[in-house]
Amino acid sequence: MLADFKKVSGWGKEEMKNADRISSIVILGLCAYFWYESTRFTKFGSLFPQAVVIALSLLALMLLIVSFFRRREKVKAFEQTGVKYINIVIAGLLIIAWTFFIKLLGFVVTSAVFFSVITIIFDSKKKTALYLLKKIGVVVATVVFFYLFFSKLLLVPFPKGVLF
């Protein structure tokens, strides 16, 4: 599975050594877009962003040039041993989904669900019924405590959504 992920994501060993090149190209692309946008601003509105874009482009260009002269070990990225990047992708997606479902389902329900899911799926312990009950219980208690603290004490109105 990890091998598949590396193939799909492009973060295989060979690609990793190109991290500096890829990041400098991404930054240069970003600079091009920001420069294009800044041409529509007023004179004083565009002054600082354009100066920063020029500086950032030059620095990214330097990084790109330097990356061609660097020895391989110095441009290693995403290469820590024993790290399961598929877990990171899953965690990242779960966090994104968590924030998007808040408005839809409501803060309490979404938080309880995603908090429990992350707690359980990344735990390597055997998932018995008692284990699940304990974990979900702790998570629900935590979520409810903080919800009450914020909504009743600090009067922060959390999004309610379809549920709660």
């Binding site: 930054i27 601003f41 004083f44 600082f48 962003p49 920063v52 950032l56 620095l59 990214a60």
Partner: peptide, 23 residues
């Protein structure tokens, strides 16, 4: 590069002088 990137992010929004709506 990180510092310059931070500077660029700081320009998002309405310009303090000139009033342009940026990025």
């Amino acid at each position: 590069i990180g510092g310059a990137f931070g500077l660029l992010i700081s320009t998002i929004g309405i310009a303090m002088i000139g009033g342009s709506v940026r990025f």
